[in-house]
């Protein structure tokens, strides 16, 4: 009957025990309200596997030590419950690595709140990305720090793709490292960058600078190309209709897909 089903449901909810030795009282002691604490348990239950959330206490502690308040801690755990699975020692290594890269307290706190996934990425992966940015792309230490702070998702991107994006913007668009870092290039996917740039280029509004960095026309700034929504981009920069841009993007997707083999083979290495 309906009644017995409801009864069963109620029983199963209240008898649900999170897979953690973290009692409600400790959460309240940390400053969570009752409802927040309920939601913390919810984030834990999102993880599959028996002892998945076994590092919950140390993770929560580490996040509070960073200076985050309960509500931001809750929000970031909802985004990234995998943090419960990270050993305390690893977490500390990763945090200290980020500090070494120049991300000190205020910016570290904001970075973690905004992109908690940064703490589930192994130190080695981040070191490789930093090495790539420093040695292959010749970004300065300061620029690398800015890139990590503004576009942290870069650490999980495929480095071949990253290299292609960097070379595209450096060589085809003639944009230097300082500008890329300043205007948050790495927040955008290669396709977003290429679509907008190619559209402008084919309209005659963007030129690859020559060896001395010169162009016949004045190129629009990277900032006004990327850091605006599509309507603004079309109205102010490309001076084109949404219909044209829509068809253009579909044509480009097909063009690139048909010449993909080269890029595919790079990925296969």
């Amino acid at each position: 009957t309906l009644q017995s089903m409801q009864h069963n449901h109620k029983v199963s909810t209240s008898s649900r025990k999170p897979d953690t030795e973290l009692p409600l009282q400790s959460l309240l002691d940390m400053g969570f309200t009752d409802t927040q604490a309920e939601r913390v348990y919810d984030t834990m239950s999102k993880l599959k596997g028996g002892s998945a959330a076994k590092h919950a206490l140390s993770t929560l502690t580490a996040l509070f030590v960073l200076g985050l308040n309960p509500s931001s801690v809750l929000k970031l755990l909802e985004k990234c419950p995998e943090l419960y699975t990270v050993q305390d020692s690893q977490l500390q290594q990763r945090l200290s690595n980020l500090r070494k890269l120049g991300l000190v307290e205020g910016s570290l706190q904001r970075l973690v709140a905004h992109y908690p996934q940064i703490l589930i990425v192994p130190v080695k992966t981040i070191k490789n990305v930093v090495l790539f940015l420093r040695e292959k792309c010749l970004f300065t230490v300061q620029q690398v720090k800015d890139i990590l702070r503004e576009s942290p998702a870069i650490v999980v991107e495929n480095t071949d793709q990253l290299e292609y994006k960097f070379q595209y913007v450096y060589f085809r668009m003639g944009v230097k490292q300082a500008t890329m870092a300043k205007y948050k290039l790495f927040r955008f996917t290669l396709d977003e960058v290429r679509h907008r740039h190619c559209f402008l280029e084919r309209r005659g509004l963007y030129q690859t600078p020559d060896k001395r960095g010169q162009t016949v026309i004045i190129n629009p700034k990277l900032d006004t190309i990327l850091n605006v929504d599509q309507d603004t981009f079309l109205a102010d920069v490309a001076k084109a209709s949404a219909e044209e841009y829509d068809v253009f993007k579909r044509l480009m997707a097909r063009e690139w897909q048909e010449q993909e083999p080269q890029l595919g083979s790079i990925e296969a290495d």
Partner: peptide
């Protein structure tokens, strides 16, 4: 053509260069 076609030219140009 930028002189002859004025504001129409960028739209025509991108079309000529696309499939």
């Amino acid at each position: 053509y930028s002189g002859q076609l004025g504001e129409l030219w960028p739209s025509i140009r991108v079309a000529l260069l696309s499939e």
